[in-house]
Structure formats: structure tokens, C-alpha cells
């Protein structure tokens, strides 16, 4: 018979990848369910982590439940690898799972991101984990979660369409910024997390698996590979990505990648590509270094790689 002391602490440290096996198993099961029902929000228990709630604990739990010793992990926030929050999360994953980390989107097997999808097309061997503050696309029209679940169950999304209609009447355009609601696999409407509209098309028929996880709200959902993702749009009022034509990256001279805007003292603005891993590689190549840069979702003229998706 084991003693209490043996039971209590077989290993004074933490479990591999921090979460205990019970938690990891639960989350993996929920993830499988999420993959089986694209866009459907699967509730999960959501453990407290030593990171503040609302700071990526949802994404982090998914990453920790999936990561293995052979993985290479990339963590970005607003597209940047070196933002303090991304650095903090990357440090935690590396410390708890002993994995290699990278800033190169192509090298990573597991990418955890807040608010962005990299510019290079992700591949079948990759999993993208998006941090989600609010998983409920119906929140703006139905704040009661129990009622919203009923609307999802009945695919009753009239209120969201009405919201678009009202915006068109009032502003003559759809005024949704980031977190643009999308229909997944022709069934569930999901929030793609607060990625810019620029990134929404990247989810459509993507080669990679996308997992979206909200730790505070305790929901995980998924876009499996090669699944239809379509933004809500009226047949005669096409969905529009952010208009950044004429914006040129101050580091690379490139256009037609998603840019951050940098106000300058005394007025005026500079721009830089928000995907810092990509910028790093473009700069390295310009210095004749040996780097491989993958095909991007948008070409140098701003055309999306799937013809006809953006009208």
C-alpha cells in the first residue's frame, strides 16, 4: 500500500508540459470533438495556469496538451515573436515541454498566435492555435450564452445578418473590424478570433489545422484542414479586407502584406509588416543569406491565392 507521501508527490516538479495528464486527456478529447464538428464551440474545464486569464491561457492549454518533444514551437502576438507576451508564453512552453522554438513560420510544427495568421501559407504538417478572448460570434446580438447556444443549434443566424444589414443602411458599408464572423463548413458561424479581415480568407480550405481556444470562456473550436470558411457577406456586397494599398514596409519595401501603422512624431506615418518572422527572412535574403521563404497567401500585387474568393 502506498503511503500518503508517495501518493502526494512522486515528482516534486511539474508534469510534462505543466498540465496534469487528466487535464491533457480531457482537452485532447474536446479537441477531437471540435475537429469532428467544425466551428462548433466545445466547452472544456479550463485550468488555471500561472499566466493571467485573458492572456492566452486558452491557446496555451491547447498548445500544452498537444506539444511533444519533437515539436518546434512558434509563438506570436500581433504577428510579432518578440512582443513581451509572446516571449513570456514561448518561454513557458519551452521550459515546461523542453521543445525547440523558432520564429520561422515554416519551421514550426505548432504555432500559437494572438490576433494574426502568418503571411506564408501554412502546410499540412502544421497546427495553428489561435488565442480567443470571446468565442461567441453572437455576443453582440445575444449576450445570454444559453440562448446563443440555442441559436447555434438551430443555425438561426438572422440577427447577425440583420446587423450587417443595419450597418449597410447606416454607414453604407459593413463596419466590422477584426473578429469578422464566418460560416464554417456551411453550418456554424464562428468568430475567427480577433484576426484582421486580411487573415480571414487564409482559413478557407487551408492545408493546416486551426484550433481556437478561449481559456477564460472555456471553449475550444476548430477549422479542420481543407474546410470551407466564408465570411458573412451579402451576395451583392462583397466582404472586404483592410485597405492598405499604397502602404510600404519600412524594412522590406514590400507591399500587400498586413501592415502595422507607426505614427511619427510631427505627423506622418510609417508602416511595417506585422509578421516579424517573415520580415526577418526577407531581410536575411536581401543580405544574401540562405533562407527559404514560403509561398504567401497574398502575392506582391495583393491577389489572394485562391482565385475568386475575394470578389
Amino acid at each position: 500500500m502506498p503511503t500518503i507521501a508517495e501518493l502526494a508527490s512522486p515528482n516534486p516538479g511539474y508534469s510534462y508540459a505543466f498540465l496534469d495528464e487528466f487535464a491533457k486527456r480531457e482537452l485532447r478529447r474536446r479537441i477531437l470533438k471540435a475537429i469532428a464538428i467544425p466551428g462548433y464551440q466545445v466547452p472544456y474545464a479550463s485550468r488555471e495556469l500561472p499566466i493571467a486569464r485573458g492572456w492566452g491561457t486558452g491557446g496555451l492549454q491547447v498548445t500544452l496538451s498537444l506539444v511533444g518533444p519533437d515539436d518546434v514551437v512558434k509563438v506570436i502576438d500581433q504577428g510579432a515573436d518578440d512582443s513581451v507576451n509572446a516571449a513570456n508564453l514561448r518561454r513557458f512552453v519551452a521550459r515546461m515541454a523542453g521543445v525547440a522554438t523558432t520564429t520561422d513560420a515554416l519551421n514550426a510544427t505548432l504555432i500559437q498566435s494572438r490576433h494574426r495568421i502568418p503571411e506564408e501559407r501554412l502546410q499540412e504538417y502544421q497546427t495553428l492555435v489561435l488565442q480567443v478572448p470571446d468565442p461567441e460570434p453572437l455576443r453582440s446580438v445575444e449576450h445570454d450564452i444559453s440562448k446563443a447556444r440555442l441559436l447555434h443549434a438551430e443555425a438561426d443566424y438572422g440577427l447577425l445578418w440583420l446587423r450587417l444589414y443595419e450597418q449597410l443602411v447606416r454607414y453604407r458599408r459593413v463596419t466590422l473590424g477584426a473578429s469578422y464572423p464566418c460560416v464554417v463548413n456551411g453550418r456554424y458561424v464562428m468568430s475567427p478570433s480577433p484576426i484582421p479581415r486580411w487573415d480571414v480568407p487564409k482559413l478557407h480550405r487551408a492545408a493546416h489545422l486551426t484550433l481556437l481556444s478561449a481559456g477564460r470562456e472555456k471553449r475550444v473550436y476548430a477549422v479542420p484542414p481543407y474546410t470551407d470558411v466564408r465570411p458573412l457577406e451579402f451576395a451583392d456586397v462583397p466582404f472586404r479586407v483592410e485597405d492598405q494599398r499604397g502602404w510600404t514596409c519600412r524594412h522590406t519595401g514590400l507591399q500587400h502584406k498586413f501592415m502595422s501603422e507607426l505614427p511619427q512624431p510631427g505627423g506622418g506615418t510609417l508602416y511595417e509588416i506585422s509578421d516579424t518572422g517573415f520580415v526577418e527572412k526577407v531581410i536575411a535574403r536581401s543580405r544574401a543569406a540562405e533562407v527559404s521563404i514560403g509561398a504567401t497567401y497574398y502575392d506582391d500585387a495583393g491577389r489572394f491565392y485562391i482565385d475568386g474568393y475575394l470578389r
Binding site: E48, A52, R53, G54, W55, T57, D77, Q78, G79, S83, N85, R114, H115, R116, P133, R173, T175, L176, G177, A178, S179, P194, I195, P196, R197, W198, R216, E242, D243, Q244, F258, M259, S260, E261, S274
Partner: peptide, 24 residues
């Protein structure tokens, strides 16, 4: 934990979402 965490998360950079909003 949830309410305080979410409250302070607004300190995190939001320049991508804000950029999207500015566009609108």
C-alpha cells in the same frame, strides 16, 4: 481570476485589431 485577468489583458498590444478598426 477571470475578471481580473481579462481586465488587465487590455494592457496587451492590440494594434492589429485597432488597425482593423481604424480601417473601418
Amino acid at each position: 481570476v477571470e475578471s481580473s485577468g481579462f481586465c488587465i489583458h487590455y494592457k496587451l498590444p492590440h494594434y492589429v485589431t485597432f488597425g482593423s478598426e481604424l480601417d473601418v
